[in-house]
């Protein structure tokens, strides 16, 4: 009788492995949790994209909550999310931009043509501030709370679905 139970072991092992692999099908290994969650936005000294004579630092972002959006004109997904960022800005969501390793003239033309949802854009031509933020691609969007602490990092485009399912709540909590 006992031996019969042992015969079930391979089946149980198969089911366990199957559940593990099945769940892995729906998780994206490229989505990394930011190491900066719970830490303040690092400081930087970089020019303003629209006015390069003007130096900016972390205090230029002003009071939270805000979204810190990493973008570039060479990034197709940034183009895809731009309309929705315009929509969010129109709804009163505060967005600051980090123009990442981009041509400043192209970036300014992009904002002039597609609309500018950002209250401020930092020109990070070398990508130094981006390294301090742990940025590994574009677009990335950080949710920063009232105390200037990073609460969440979203990798990939911000769209209606992502906003409604996840980011809207986190943004609201960041403002509390």
């Amino acid at each position: 009788m006992n031996k019969r139970i042992f015969l079930l072991l391979p089946l149980l092992a198969f089911v366990a492995v199957g559940v593990f692999f099945y769940s892995a099908l729906f998780s994206d290994p490229r989505e990394l949790e930011s190491a900066l969650v719970g830490k303040p936005v690092p400081d930087f000294q970089l020019p303003d994209l629209l006015n390069p004579q003007q130096q900016t630092d972390v205090s230029s972002f002003g009071e939270g909550p805000y979204l810190l959006n990493v973008w570039a004109t060479w990034c197709p997904t940034c183009r895809a999310e731009h309309e929705f960022l315009n929509t969010l800005a129109a709804q009163g969501v505060k967005i600051v931009g980090l123009n990442y390793k981009d041509e400043p003239t192209k970036a300014r033309r992009w904002l002039a043509q597609l609309g500018d949802p950002y209250v401020l854009n930092v020109l990070d031509y070398e990508g130094t501030f981006a390294i301090d933020l742990g940025v590994y691609g574009a677009p990335e969007t950080f949710i920063v709370d009232r105390q200037g602490v990073i609460q969440y990092r979203h990798v990939g485009d911000v769209n209606v679905r992502v906003w409604q399912e996840k980011l809207a709540d986190l943004y609201r909590q960041a403002g509390e």
Binding site: L32, E33, S34, A35, L36, I131, D132, L133, G134, Y136
Partner: peptide
């Protein structure tokens, strides 16, 4: 590197 990008 770990401070910025995590243990990964």
């Amino acid at each position: 590197m770990v401070q910025r990008y995590g243990d990964f």
